[in-house]
């Protein structure tokens, strides 16, 4: 059935209000969008890495999750989920359970790109039937905006401050989606919460209902870390997509497919200038040009992979 936003509003909400994420945070928007792709009759177990999403949605004695949920530590959301999934396989095999469950692990870019990459790689390689969702807000926001390997070059963070000598982070961001492609998973996608949420919904649905391990990398703007006004959440994601900083694509059994091609590719400066974390360099033509070239290089590569060139 073709995607219809209004139809999806009929599904039960699986992440309730009453959690304590910041006003205007992108992460719960990503989480509830992914969960909306679950069939209402299916049950789920959700895991989360330590991070904003976890410490704000499950503060004793309140859980915002309507499904069973487990958090154990920072670097192991993937394998904690894999442990639950293994238990499910055993319970099914031994006739202890009739219901259908789906398994979704969440982690921020810190818990996914960095400290959690070993556990993620292991769980994906072993082929557990689960979805790992990275909500990438481009820094360790939970501990106070420290740089991660997902942080864009030149971003001002509390451990890559824009100083008098060193103007913010000195490295380009790691392309984790590409790293996950190298795991030869049945389904991998990069998406963002934009427009009528068709892209994120359809990818979440495919990820959840493709047998075997799947990985979603989802851009999740952070008003505090990126330094923009809270109402602009969706605008920020849209700009990242339209500048091709964050292309939307999927890789199904190794086959790349671009799922969104901006009609007018916007210059990276549009995205940089909208955020306080780039204020120190957004007018520096040389640096902006350098970033533009890197965005173009990666975009061209992707177009080639997707057979768009």
């Amino acid at each position: 059935m073709a995607y219809n936003l209004k139809e999806t509003s009929l599904k039960p909400e699986r992440l309730t209000g009453g959690h304590r994420m910041c006003a205007g945070c992108g992460a719960p928007v990503v989480a509830r969008s992914v969960l909306r792709a679950l069939k209402p009759e299916d049950k789920a177990v959700i895991t989360s890495a330590t991070g904003c999403l976890e410490v704000s949605t499950f503060i004793y004695p309140y859980t915002a999750w309507k499904d069973s949920f487990i958090h154990s530590a920072f670097e192991n959301s993937a394998v904690t989920c894999a442990g639950v999934e293994a238990a499910y396989v055993n319970m099914k095999k031994t006739g202890q359970l009739d219901d259908t469950y789906k398994f979704i692990a969440f982690g921020g870019d810190g818990g996914t790109y960095d400290i959690g990459i070993q556990s993620l790689s292991g769980a994906m390689e072993r082929g557990h039937d689960m979805v790992y969702v990275c909500y990438d807000n481009g820094a360790y926001m939970n501990t106070g905006i420290q740089r991660s390997s997902a942080t864009p070059k030149y971003a001002d963070t509390t451990t890559s401050p824009a100083g008098k000598v060193v103007p913010g982070k000195q490295q380009y961001r790691k392309d984790l989606t590409a790293v996950m492609v190298a795991h030869n998973l049945p389904y991998i996608a990069q998406t963002a919460p934009i427009g009528n949420f068709k892209d994120i919904y359809e990818k979440a649905e495919k990820a959840i209902y493709t047998e075997g391990p799947a990985f979603l990398n989802v851009l999740a703007p952070c008003p505090r870390g990126w330094r923009y006004d809270t109402p602009k959440l969706i605008e920020m994601a849209q700009l990242a997509v339209d500048t091709c900083f964050w292309p939307l694509y999927e890789v199904e059994n190794g086959v790349y497919k671009l799922t969104y091609k901006p009609k007018n590719k916007r210059p990276i400066s549009d995205w940089l200038e909208a955020q306080g974390r780039f204020r120190h360099m957004a007018k520096d033509a040389e640096k902006v040009e350098e970033l533009q070239q890197e965005v173009d290089r990666r975009w061209d590569l992707l177009l080639a992979m997707c057979g768009e060139k």
């Binding site: 049950k43 177990v45 499950f58 503060i59 004793y60 069973s68 499910y88 319970m91």
Partner: peptide, 14 residues
């Protein structure tokens, strides 16, 4: 966690 009659949450911020 896999009790279909009562979903639970484990490992809170305490």
């Amino acid at each position: 966690l896999l009790n279909p009659n009562q979903p639970i949450a484990v490992g809170p911020l305490d």
